[in-house]
Simulated assay, not measured.
Amino acid sequence: MTAVTTPFGFASTAEEVAHGVDLTGRRVLVTGASSGLGAETARVLAGTGADVTLAVRDTAAGERVAKEIAESTDNRDVHVAQLDLADPASVAAFTDAWEGPLHVLVNNAGVMACPERYSAQGWEWQFATNHLGHFALATGLHDALAADGAARVVAVSSSGHQLSPVVWDDIHFAFRRYDPWLAYGQSKTANVLFAVEATRRWAADGITANALMPGAIYTNLQRHTEGGRGSGTVAAELIKTVHQGAATAVLLATSPLLEGIGGRYFTDCNETQVVARRTGTLNGVAKYAVDPDNAARLWDLSQELLAAAD
């Protein structure tokens, strides 16, 4: 399998990646689009002419961003919808209300290294938000994605996935001492595994899914890190702007180079190598994160957890 390479790289911006792309008549959904990478991703995709929906917890913040996007892109097809990924009922209400096809789903929202917290279902908060919420969203929107015949799902993961595989015997830290970074890493591994299995399961529907590391960018995502083992250890020359950080997600959402390609992991706008041990860099995808058996197991487990929550 040949790795996907593109003319873009570390310093490329989302606007550069999307230059010349016309998504007029296409519908795009971006989660967590009220700030940071999500807002920039939504702005650039709106600039291609797409009909863009911002799925956010804080609809007031979302409306402010939507207004700014509409004014800066001259695209009035920018909408806001309420979505709380940690609440299965909220996700179900969102997917039930969706009408018509969906061409691109960008699973961008997330939490990083937050204090110990659990959902009403007893799920560890980062796993619940970063993985299970997006899993429920994507599967709930399957028919809308399938209606397109060539839909794309973009899963925003992180090099932090190298901190932990999915720990099958104790995903929700019932026995392990809670560690915010291990929990984060596990949830980001789950994002990659989702892309692998979604591509396999939904191949007949023409749906592809890819995962990515956006890079090290200072946004609201880092509010819990306090300069610890997160962005605080990244060399200054490796820090990206939000415009650069959104580039890889926009590439996966729009580039003709990705037509029919799924189940892969990208960094700096290019597919990165599979590694057998932690790299200590922002590159590389752990072997366990693209393992097809792990991906199938996580899919089945996710379905079981969500079914039990009904």
Rank of each mutant, 00 (worst) to 15 (best):
C269R: 01
G245C: 11
Y184M: 06
I217G: 10
G49H: 03
G47F: 05
A276T: 15
A147R: 12
F194V: 03
G133P: 13
A66K: 01
A246C: 11
D143T: 14
A81L: 08
N294W: 01
G133R: 07
T53A: 15
T53H: 14
D58I: 12
R152I: 12
V242A: 03
T189R: 00
G230C: 11
D179L: 04
F8W: 11
G284R: 04
L45D: 06
D169M: 05
V91T: 13
M1T: 15
P88V: 03
R57C: 10
T2R: 13
L282V: 13
A97E: 15
G100L: 04
D74N: 13
G25A: 05
T199K: 00
I69M: 08
L238P: 06
A92H: 10
G215P: 07
S119K: 06
G284N: 08
F173Q: 05
D51T: 14
T208R: 05
V156D: 03
T13E: 07
L85Q: 03
G232N: 13
G262D: 03
A144V: 10
E40M: 08
P180F: 03
P88S: 08
D268I: 02
V196I: 05
L132G: 07
L145I: 15
R43V: 09
A246L: 10
A308D: 13
G284M: 06
S90W: 05
T13H: 11
W299C: 07
K188A: 06
I239Y: 14
S35M: 06
A211S: 15
R43G: 09
G47Y: 00
V104M: 12
G110S: 15
G263R: 07
